[in-house]
Computed example of a mutant assay.
Amino acid sequence: MATIIPIESGDGSKKWRATVRKKRNGKLILNRSKTFSSKKLAEQWATKLEAQLQDDEGISAVLAQASLSGQTLADVIHKHVAYFHQLKPFGETKRYTYKVLAEADFAQKPLHQLTSADILAWFTDRRVRLKSTPATLLQYFGNLRQVLQLAKPTFGVSLSVALIDDIRPTLKAGNMIGQGVERDRRLKPGEYRTLLAWFRKYDATRAKHLKMADLFRFLVRMPLRLGEACRISWSELDTKKRTAMIRDRKDPKNKLGNDQLVPILGRAWRIIQDLPRSSDEDRIFPYREESVSILFAKACEACGIENLHLHDLRHEATSRLFERGYAVQEVALVTGHKSWDMLRRYTQIRPESLHR
């Protein structure tokens, strides 16, 4: 039975507190109270809640909602990462994906207030404002869905997968999620100089911790993924052999522990050697991937360069190695590809480069 009592608020006005208690097998399983401005509203709330508690299904639904109170999706994401990472360690990209999801606006809302519209707004912003690719957003979609799907069996937190499944048609119709497509974009004449000039001006006038010009020059000459370049350390640089250890290179089966010794070729080596060293930072390019990606997109927009992605620089560098006469197996040693079929999509050799 519900109890409704009058109470005096801090400003002296009269309010009404409704309390609903539910026992099962003599044990109190629910004790919920709420305060209202009128007795009628208190009675309506109590009547509605008591109606929900008439059968086991209703009781379970109310208890599930109560378990969400005070928790946010960010809390669940952190639990998910902590639990599953200890069973099968995540690679850096996956950890970063979960980090971005946990920092999203929708992840800060109480779970019982979270809606599909909140999640859709976040995906839309990533696609429109940050220019995230459909393939990247598909990774966020898949990881978020897994968090929702495993929350109840793993942590006893009832979350509906419908929160993400309901927006899938909209995401697909708006080309916000999808498989990656093969690209053949390389730097066009003049684009390298234009971007380099923009980055040098940025570095000289605005950058404090992110020096983009040297990283840009390096990525055009070394076909590494951005995350790989940002993990190279001074302590694992062999100055005699001109090699660097690349930790946790991407691999279809398991990237964790897939460490490879890679030669730093040509001018890329000189770029590294000219960089200043920091006593409190071992990484050669100690930058956040997201910060670099955002700045690169900003530079392209400012310079009027269209349809150029940061990852296209890996294509550019790979093609340059082939144009310089390196064999397939030699290029694969640098890029980390296991077969020619995998390497082929990153290769766009210009016809004029075949003239010797």
Results as ranks from 00 to 15, higher is better:
Leu187Ile: 12
Arg193Leu: 00
Arg193Lys: 15
Arg193Trp: 01
Thr194Tyr: 01
Trp198Val: 00
Ala204Leu: 00
Arg206Val: 00
Ala207Thr: 01
Lys208Cys: 00
His209Pro: 00
Leu210Asn: 05
Met212Cys: 01
Asp214Phe: 05
Asp214Asn: 11
Asp214Lys: 12
Phe216Tyr: 07
Phe218Cys: 06
Val220Ala: 14
Arg221Ala: 09
Met222Asn: 15
Leu224Ile: 04
Leu224Thr: 06
Leu226Lys: 12
Leu226Gly: 12
Glu228His: 11
Glu228Trp: 07
Cys230Ile: 05
Cys230Trp: 06
Arg231Leu: 09
Arg231Val: 07
Arg231Met: 11
Ile232Asn: 03
Ile232Lys: 04
Ser235Asn: 10
Ser235Ile: 05
Leu237Asn: 04
Arg242Tyr: 08
Ala244Arg: 03
Met245Gln: 11
Met245Val: 14
Asp248Lys: 10
Asp248Leu: 02
Asp248Glu: 08
Arg249Ser: 14
Asp251Glu: 08
Asp251Cys: 08
Lys255Gly: 11
Leu256Trp: 12
Leu256Asn: 15
Gly257Leu: 02
Gln260His: 12
Val262His: 05
Val262Ile: 05
Pro263Arg: 13
Pro263Tyr: 14
Gly266Gln: 11
Arg267Tyr: 12
Ala268Glu: 04
Arg270Gln: 13
Ile271Thr: 06
Gln273Phe: 02
Gln273Leu: 07
Gln273Gly: 15
Leu275Asn: 02
Leu275Gln: 01
Ser278Asn: 13
Ser278Asp: 11
Asp280Asn: 13
Arg283Tyr: 14
Pro286Asn: 04
Glu289Arg: 15
Glu289Gly: 15
Ser291Tyr: 03
Ser293Tyr: 14
Ser293Arg: 15
Ser293Asn: 12
Leu295Asn: 12
Phe296Glu: 03
Phe296His: 08
Phe296Val: 11
Ala297Asp: 14
Lys298Tyr: 09
Ala299Lys: 06
Ala299Thr: 07
Cys300Arg: 10
Cys300Gln: 07
Glu301Trp: 10
Glu301Asn: 15
Ala302Lys: 15
Gly304Trp: 04
Asn307Phe: 13
Leu308His: 07
Leu308Phe: 07
His309Met: 05
His309Asn: 06
Glu316Leu: 13
Glu316Cys: 11
Glu316Asp: 12
Ala317Pro: 02
Ala317Cys: 05
Ala317Thr: 02
